[in-house]
Write a protein that binds this DNA or RNA. Structure first.
Lengths: 170, 170
DNA sequence: TCCCCTGGGTTGCTCGATGCAACCCAGAAC
DNA sequence: GTTCTGGGTTGCATCGAGCAACCCAGGGGA
């Protein structure tokens, strides 16, 4: 969540602020908003780093995978590294950047929603574990003091005088 | 977050549990995982309900909008209602179901990520306001007691004996 | 030396989805 | 009975996903 993360923004993306979508949800979706991108990032959070692993576990076509990985690297959420196992040649691997790590909460929120609203009969297959206490974690709203806030008390509020008032703003 | 929400699941979706993707993130993405769906839902959370409003504010082609709205109704996150303003004929409107309302936390998490990692020079345009206290709300992890949990302490953990072990599970 | 294996891709083709433009239809107002 | 407005449908061009096949580099074994 560090503000200096913006240094990792995609370099070809214009620095002119008004060429970006006004809504931060739209900007986020421009980078990670397709099905494969989020599934790849889910696997990255599970610890996968190699092309062949992503391909096997997701059943994704190699050209699509190459395309998505390159886009995610460009978006600054994955980092391509070379590695070499002993007696092997150098290979490529893909690791989460801090921006990618910060997507954990987005994935967790989606997962929590899916578990509740599109359940399987055999229950959740992946849990969100608090590794410090051993308990389970949920995604929720917090106020400035770290106190939980009921979702129904939270409203999206356009900044007064901002551009989010009744025009095409995507 | 009520469990009886599963009654609102898409009726054409098979009840056979093994035809659904194993991962709840994938199941969630099957319903709301394309760019337009999430942007439509964002507008629904801002209070928009009418076809023409969605169309105008998003700049979306009408056939795509009709397609997406129908899919979201079928997915159980929007509900189509007829309404009639006085002196007008009946019209259609689209309202969030409880499942749709529960997506607020997903949209908020995406928005928060976008504000941090793809910022605009003029700052956020939409805030998450705690309507009870007037403060701002953030999205975070909570433990069973409602205490905040640092994101780095939360890990995705496959259920032991579950299907999430090293095969194609999408 | 030659061949094979493995990881990490690229190339070609097909086909469904997306986007735009144009058109349609119902009912109320004039 | 014509117009206006909301809520769509239809036709066509294009784009991207998916699958299959192929490629290429380096290391290991015969």
């Amino acid at each position: 969540m560090s503000p200096e993360m913006s240094l990792e923004m995609s370099p070809e993306m214009s620095t002119e602020t008004d060429t970006l979508p006004t809504c931060s949800i739209a900007r986020a979706l421009d980078l990670v908003g397709d099905r494969w991108a989020l599934l790849i990032l889910r696997e990255a959070h599970r610890g996968f780093t190699r092309f062949a692993d992503f391909r096997e576990v997701l059943g994704i076509a190699p050209n699509i995978l190459a395309n998505r990985l390159a886009a995610l690297v460009e978006a600054g959420v994955l980092e391509k590294r070379e590695y070499r196992a002993e007696g092997e040649r150098t290979r490529s691997s893909y690791h989460l950047t801090p921006a990618g790590v910060d997507l954990k909460i987005v994935l967790a929120a989606l997962q929590q929603w899916g578990d509740v609203h599109v359940p399987r009969a055999d229950g959740p297959t992946v849990l969100r574990r608090n590794t410090r206490t051993g308990g389970l974690a949920t995604v929720g709203f917090l106020d400035e003091n770290g106190e939980p806030v009921p979702a129904e008390d939270v409203a999206f509020e356009p900044v007064p005088g901002g551009p989010a008032d009744r025009r095409i703003w995507r």
